[in-house]
Design a binder for these strands. Sequence first.
RNA 1: GCGCCCGUAGCUCAGUUGGAUAGAGCAUCAGCCUUCUAAGCUGAGGGUCGUAGGUUCGAUUCCUACCGGGCGCACCA
Length: 543
Amino acid sequence: MTDRIRAELARVAEQLGAPGIEFVLERPRDAGHGDLATNLAMVMARALKTAPRPLAEKVLKELGLPPGVARSEIAGPGFINFWLASDELGQQLASIVTAGRDYGRHDFGAGRRVNVEFVSANPTGPLHVGHGRGAALGDGIAALLERTGHAVTREFYINDAGTQIEKLAQSLWARLQQAAGRAAEIPEGGYHGRYLEEMAQSLLASDQSLAELPADQGIARSRAFVLAAQRAEQDQLLADFGVHFDVFTSEQTMYDRGKVEQLLDHLERAGLTFEQEGALWLRTSSFGDDQDRVLRKSDGSLTYFTPDLAYHMDKHERGFQTAIDVWGADHHGYIPRMRAALTALGYPPDFFEVTIVQLVKVVKGGEEVKMSKRSGEFVTLRDLLDDVGVDAARYFFMMRRGDSQFVFDVDLARSQTEENPVFYVQMAHARMSGIFRVANRAPESVQPSARVEDLPAPEDTELLKKLTAFPEVTARAAREREPHRITGFLEELARLAHGWYHKCRVLGEAPNVEAARLTLARATQIVLANGLGVLGLTAPERM
RNA sequence: GCGCCCGUAGCUCAGUUGGAUAGAGCAUCAGCCUUCUAAGCUGAGGGUCGUAGGUUCGAUUCCUACCGGGCGCACCA
């Protein structure tokens, strides 16, 4: 419907001398302004240098409106408002029930291959709440893209080749020595967290001889231990968090598979590099970065940037048309060099995208729970999950834009009351389900009753109109990579659903009204479930 | 010093790609249980959209400067 009106408006715009003009056709927030409104006359007025209202009259005169539009008017400074016929609304209701789980799906992604890389935590410690936010957001973005017709791969990059890992291995080695009663110091820049102490103790308990190894072997063993332990722990935790990765790529394999060498070769042959003071540089400043970047240090070793760039090249070679990276805010300064380098490689500008995830502040009992990686004290994702559960954690992380700082109120997330948005939304779904339970009918058995005349209350109409907005919300959320648009919509919908439930009886009404309201309840249940589903949350039948 | 993000009700935050009278939840206050879940619902008060300019029919939205908060500015990862 919207598409047909939009097309007709575009046709008239062309006819009146403004072809291809950009205009908005939207649902006005004020119901008094109709079901749909356009600013076409006003944007045309600017382009054609005439007054908007007379122009709106001309537009309206030329407009061949589809039969679903009941009436139209010119209002305010030159808006054109449309009211839809009530049978149009009824048909939309029926189509929700018919579409079921597919309602809110789109195919505009057209099978575009998208790689979403997220979490990608260093294997140097437990995942903390910041990773949790990245995990929820990355997974949410991936799910949104899937539901809009993209071919999505969820990917995790393991930073297992850097000096961080070396420090960690050395730190564990020191802890092993200490646990065996020897004097040993955590190396400079090493890891002081208690989890290494615990790991050392349990390793030693199962193999006393470990601490007897010569240092180089001991460190090598330590490295293998920490990598395996971190991987196992992270896998389990992410699984518990409801996040599934399709691909894990290790930094080390970028070397092992010759990707790094291949990259350096390619860059040098293309004349994109130069040597200075014994180091090899990439001319990123020619491609938008504010300075050139070192690929190979003067001591012969590579910077972190080089294998990471090779990794992105690898993604491109694997056939991905878009690579979305979800990064912590502390890495945002890294974006220009990566973008510049990928431009230098000749990749299209829409290949590389970054979604930035800002810091999470955890508040419990009205007080901030401090987190500091250096001191080894931080709020782990595991602690948070144990505290508030998966659904609440995922929902909370997704309910705010990634690029604003976020206060995670643990007490709120735990609460089983209306104040808690997760609870509130899930409760709305449970209530819709409850109607069918009491009626002793399977929700799936509902045959769409599409007559809006049988939905007499204003609450009926308001709820229904909200439901019809869901596809637009999912489309926008996917395009903008903003899962919080879904949570916001769900809360608005839940509010209407609760109000409707309170005001409008379903069972025991006149048969035609009961049938129509059962359809509405079913449609509401579907949209709530689909919305919760995109976010990876459960939609409980009862609570 | 330079760059990026943020600044909207007491608090936490939305704000439909420049639109009509700026919204929601919490908190506060006032109501509502003979009902398919009161684990809920209804209503009220609450705003100089950080500040000052600019762009135009119109600015919370775009531009500039400044103020405040966060994060970055490595031959670290």
